[in-house]
């Protein structure tokens, strides 16, 4: 059993490695994408410097905490798009019958789909997150927590994209809905949860899982709590299991389009 798991993981890592190597064929474009994405994220520092010049704390966050929030959001987004970028364009595969190529592979279908694409600019997001951590609030404990939460956040984000994307097995128009729901997670993730009140918080923890992917991890890094840490880990497992279940249920409804094409 463990050998099978090891083999699957090895194939996934090789898939990601070859995705990146393919993108590196044009080194200038590769490096420009990474560098400009990091710069693109850095422009938002201006926004927060301006906002903090108006008030000392925003939603219970100081500038340092907001930067930690931004760093975690960027690295979570980055890792998800490096390893599992295809989860974010899953509806295209489903609607246009492009899953055939993955169904005939002698490996796990879902993992093959998820790891079949890598977004180069996401490397810039991941690096930006780490740089922000180092500049604004580095400590050894926080570094390890940051890495752990980058992984759990990326898994939650991918699982949410997978859940939303799988709706296309049932509804054709779900493609755009899925895209907007997934991007809404990024929109919320870059603002402190303290500015939202009442029912909105419920929405951010139960409907759009940004609460467990970003907000709780930031609170844990600011003030460690083992119970909350376990809750985040448990939530990550549960949401992943739900996403896998829904994907395979949906896959039963999938019909091929007899599309002949080589996988890029």
């Amino acid at each position: 059993m463990s050998t099978a798991v090891k083999n699957e993981l090895r194939v996934c890592m090789l898939s990601v490695k070859y995705n990146i190597m393919r993108e590196m064929l044009n080194k200038v474009t590769f490096l420009t994408n990474i560098l400009f994405m990091a710069l693109n994220n850095a422009t938002f520092i201006v926004q927060w410097v301006i906002l903090f010049s108006l008030r000392e704390d925003i939603g219970g966050y100081a500038l340092r905490d907001v930067m930690l929030l931004w760093g975690l959001a960027a690295s979570t987004f980055g890792l998800a798009h490096i390893l599992f970028a295809r989860a974010f364009s899953l509806p295209d595969l489903i609607i246009n019958g492009k899953l055939d190529a993955y169904l005939v592979l002698p490996k796990n279908v879902l993992l093959s789909v998820l790891t079949s694409q890598t977004s180069v600019s996401a490397i810039g997001d991941l690096l930006y997150g780490l740089v922000i951590l180092c500049v604004f609030s580095l400590s050894i404990g926080r570094f390890f927590l940051f890495v752990l939460f980058t992984v759990t956040g990326a898994v939650i984000y991918t699982a949410f994209a997978l859940l939303m994307g799988s709706l296309s097995f049932w509804f054709v128009r779900a493609e755009m809905f899925a895209g907007h729901m997934t991007s809404s997670m990024v929109s919320f993730a870059t603002y402190p949860d303290g500015i939202f009140k009442g029912a909105v918080k419920f929405l951010l923890y139960l409907v759009i899982p940004v609460g467990m992917a970003i907000y709780q991890p930031v609170h844990i890094m600011m003030d460690f709590n083992a119970g909350r840490l376990l809750a985040v880990l448990g939530y990550t497992l549960l949401l992943s299991a739900a996403a896998v279940f829904v994907f395979y249920r949906g896959l039963r409804r999938y019909s091929s389009s007899n599309l002949m094409e080589a996988r890029g």
Binding site: V28, T29, T32, F36, M37, L39, N40, T43, S121
Partner: peptide
Amino acid sequence: WIEDANPFHWL
């Protein structure tokens, strides 16, 4: 001139 103008669009 360049393969991908997207990074300039981002900025």
